[in-house]
Amino acid sequence: MTETLDVETEVPEKASQEGEMYTWHEGMEWNPVERIILERRSVRKYKDKQVPEKLVRRILEAGRFAPSAGNSQPWKFIVVRDREMIEDMEKYVRLRCKVLKFMLNWQTSPLGKFAWLYSQMGARLMPNLMHPIPFGATALIADGKLKLFHGAPTVILILMDTRGAAKPPVDVGICGQNMILAAHSLGLGTCWVGFVEVFKFGTKWNKKLGVQWPYRLVEGIALGYPVAKPDGMIERELQEVDWWEDGRKRTVF
């Protein structure tokens, strides 16, 4: 007599392969796109080696095909690969940051209490720009401890067409993120540089770069080969998400 053994065989889940795309099953490894998104870190130290022109052109293509409201494409790119020009920009922004630090940083400013008053007023008028982080960065740039483009050999400036459909600032952000993810997938490092906005406190660069109505300079992207290996997964705070389903609300993290 033979007994049939009831052996529980583990049904192997579909073996997960690296590089799987356009599909999902439980326990799947990160696909290449997810990996680029999760591992991408801001790079703040670049090698001197210039980025090949073709590579920059390829990255710009990723920006060109970004989605935008009503396909309005409210952006214009300026590529700067001239080292002297980049250094000039850095000097210019550093001088402006020195003035801002003098006016607003009550800890170091000879204006003392007045600087404190200006900063409190400024924070109410421009709460985003006077957030403690950019406020601290202004002082670091003024002291020469933080370089505007972190010594990157190539800089892409993004101009926003203010006449764009619906929400051009959002479209510009999407476009920039496209380029940044493409750049990291191609082995480059990038960093968003919002401090280029300081150019608006003067005419020199607006004139030289042709920033005029309807355009506004909103963001810069530093581009280059990173020193060491800055990309990698890190810990970050979970986000509290309100989840509505079956007529009730749950909170998930």
Binding site: G27, M28, E29, W30, L38, A123, P127, H131, P132, I133, M233, I234, E235, R236, E237, L238, Q239, E240, F253
Partner: peptide, 21 residues
């Protein structure tokens, strides 16, 4: 993680965690 309080108080965040698969 930073939290400057008052006007800039951080809202609706949880613990630090690696990307979850």
């Amino acid at each position: 993680t930073y939290d400057f309080g008052y006007f800039y108080k951080i809202l609706h965040r949880g613990e630090l965690a690696y990307p979850r698969n």
